[in-house]
Design a protein around this nucleic acid. Sequence first.
DNA 1: CGATACGTAAACAAGT
DNA 2: AACTTGTTTACGTATC
Length: 729
Amino acid sequence: MMMQESATETISNSSMSQNGMSTLSSSQLEAGSRDGRSSAGDTSSEVSTVELLHLQQQQALQAARQLLLQQPGSGLKSPKSQDKQRPLQVPVSVAMMSPQVITPQQMQQILQQQVLSPQQLQALLQQQQAVMLQQQHLQEFYKKQQEQLHLQLLQQQHPGKQVKEQQQQQQLAAQQLVFQQQLLQMQQLQQQQHLLNMQRQGLLSLPGPAPGQAALPGQTLQPPAGLSPAELQQLWKDVTGGNGHGMEDNGIKHNSSGSTGGGNGGGLDLSTNNSSSTTSSSNPAKASPPLSHHSIANGQSPILNHRRERERERERERESSLHEESGGTHPLYGHGVCKWPGCEKLCEDFGQFLKHLNSEHALDDRSTAQCRVQMQVVQQLEIQLNLVSSVTMSKNLPPASPPNLPQTPTTPTAPITPMAAMPQVPSVLGGANVPSMGAMRRRHSDKYSMPLSSGGDTVFIFPEIAPNYEFYKNADVRPPFTYATLIRQAIIDSAEHQLTLNEIYSWFTRTFAYFRRNAATWKNAVRHNLSLHKCFVRVENVKGAVWTVDEVEYQKRRSQKITGSPSLVKNLPSSLGYGTALNASLQAALAETSLPLLGTPGLMNSGSTGPMGGSCHGLLGGDASGLLGGSPPGLLGGSPPGMLSGSPPMLMQSAHEELNGSLDHLDTNGHGSPGYSPSAHMPPIHVKEEPLNMDDDDCPMSLVTTANHSPELDDDRELEEGNLSEDLE
DNA sequence: CGATACGTAAACAAGT
DNA sequence: AACTTGTTTACGTATC
């Protein structure tokens, strides 16, 4: 019976979280629309949203490209795996992938570089306003010209054309270019503005640090944080000269050439095509002079001249080849393949591509939804990044690398969020919500012992861990450790290695954001564990009773487990997703086991290499599936969700596993340090939250949400524990 | 499939 | 009486 209740609770919670998410997303959208309205004056909210989405899509594409280029083998796998798992959401998954791939460092760089100063923002806004006024007129004009041009082109196709006509055409083309450029610029500015507005309003902004906790006051809506790095990047590129020519594009994107008639310039892909681009959709290619790209860039006269010339040439070419569409360029078209995330359809020519684009990737609800999901994903990633970065940064450690962590050989940073992000995110953010399920999480955790040290009293066994400590302290993620392990840690951390029950409670709340809610539940669990496990010894004290740890007993227990489970590795697939988590668990594990070992990283790694390698990448696939849709019913389903699901971000099981392996060795070797358990395998991290489930459908959405914890959950008295909250900081 | 570990819920008792 | 602290039992889930 109880279980059922809990289950229902979970469900309700999850639903709540979803709602929360949806709410958030909706609010965001609304906000976005508002912006659009306010700023643009009635530009339909949709437009802004769409634009944003497009930007993000592009971003995702870019990221994907970069990944492909940078990470030869690794990155590729994950996507596939994901796709397999979640076929329908391919685009989404793909988009997600890219972000995942991005290393934390990259993200940080982006963030750092991309921040717009207030003045810049203002300037942009002003520019845009001015531009907007003109835009309508220009658009109309542009359309007319495009039509004319189109007609002329058609005429030219016929053999006997007169020179004059050609000249006229050229002139028109030139004019068109100018207008087109202007138009594009305006559009871009508009996009920017939308983004900026959103940013300002905090729509996009993710609460930096602790999603889970709304807590940190200031952070939340700060403008700068707002846009995702990628967004900013893209935006900046588009705005600044990026568009201009080439960016990288030349190579990759000629695209930008506004060919798509719409002149997306690079920025707006679809939107442009469909909408404004206008008439063109039908013959965008024709109308749009390939120039566009370039034009977009500056729109400067000098450049224009060159462009004009080029255009002429191109037009000639065009004429010859007719609709070859000049290889119409489009941000989503390259190498004869549709670059829409997850699509990759082969299109013989640009025209075919356009057809495909309009038919398959039209801005319908579906694509819009996909875009939204992507946005959300990006946001989540940002959040995670913030968390991670905050943690790592605060601690001096080089982000990814705990000493030896096999961690991420490949992607040092990668960890961050690989796919897992998706699934996990929810949990993280919204998190913890739910108390949930019964026994999902599990034991593995024990294996690691967590060296976390709480603030004051404790001494960090391993400083490296600190980062993780910060993470769990602020993120509403369930730690991947068993209650027994945590309790032990709490006691060990204390000065006298003994704590009263209440002190243990305090440690939990102080150390883990996750335990700031549902107090009744976890406190009961703590008591239960104290009583149940022999390793915890109650000692009568003057003041009352205190709890101590009998390491011998603790080790016994652990050793048993350890010995038996080399298998952990298996889980990897499912757990892959976590990136940073890795650190936490790994570190923890390392900490424990390795105390002695620290010096010998090699050991760790050696073991890991094997297993780990693949796993890391696998991240995406595995976890995500598990979390999201994969695990069906119960949270646990596929990926054992165990504890951390919420955290998501981080843990890479693979790493854990490796660690495990290594750890195991260690253990086996027996260096058993007295106090610390050998720890051993890394368990998959479970996330309790299970955000997972949400409906499969929603899964993506889940991401969205949550940045703050939903108050709801707490029936508990957590609030009561004011200190805890205080302690946090 | 059974054993075990774990998490959760709850009943109950004793103490404050 | 209400709450805290402990103990114990039961049950579901996951792993071995």
